[in-house]
């Protein structure tokens, strides 16, 4: 029985690590950059692709969302910290123009917080 307990506890530890403790390294190389002022984000199969995006502060950047996922959950994208949201019709590109005033990390999610992405707003180098 102790084998079962160990397996169970290991599984629980794995879940905690994978979903909560694991932090993508702050290495901004993991983030897709909107250097040219625009970036396309695909909403497909329950995820945003890319999910990690970096944009410069005080400069307009366009995120073009293209929703392929037909489930109703994917219908809206919400940038909570920036008070911006948009409806995403299937297969229709939707442009969200962001001009963040402050640097930092902002999450973007679907209305039910099931689809998750992260926006890194960087100071100019």
């Amino acid at each position: 029985m102790w084998i079962i307990n160990i397996i169970g506890l290991l599984l629980i530890a794995g879940i905690i690590w994978w979903f909560w403790l694991y932090k993508p390294s702050n290495d901004t190389e993991n983030y897709t950059s909107a250097d040219s002022g625009a970036i396309t984000v695909l909403v497909e199969n329950g995820v945003y692709q890319p999910a990690l995006i970096k944009i410069p502060v005080n400069q307009a950047s366009t995120l073009r969302f293209i929703r392929k996922d037909k489930t109703p959950c994917a219908e809206t994208v919400v940038f909570d910290g920036l008070d911006i949201s948009a409806e995403l019709p299937v297969d229709k590109p939707v442009d969200i123009v962001l001009t963040p005033q402050n640097s930092g990390t902002f999450g973007f999610t679907c209305q039910m917080k099931m689809y998750k992405g992260q926006l890194l707003v960087e100071e100019h180098r």
Partner: peptide, 17 residues
């Protein structure tokens, strides 16, 4: 769609319905 979605979310350290 449930299985593909679950797998892609998992790879991104996300979990959903």
């Amino acid at each position: 769609h449930f299985y593909v979605g679950a797998w892609k979310s998992f790879r991104n350290h996300n979990a959903n319905m």
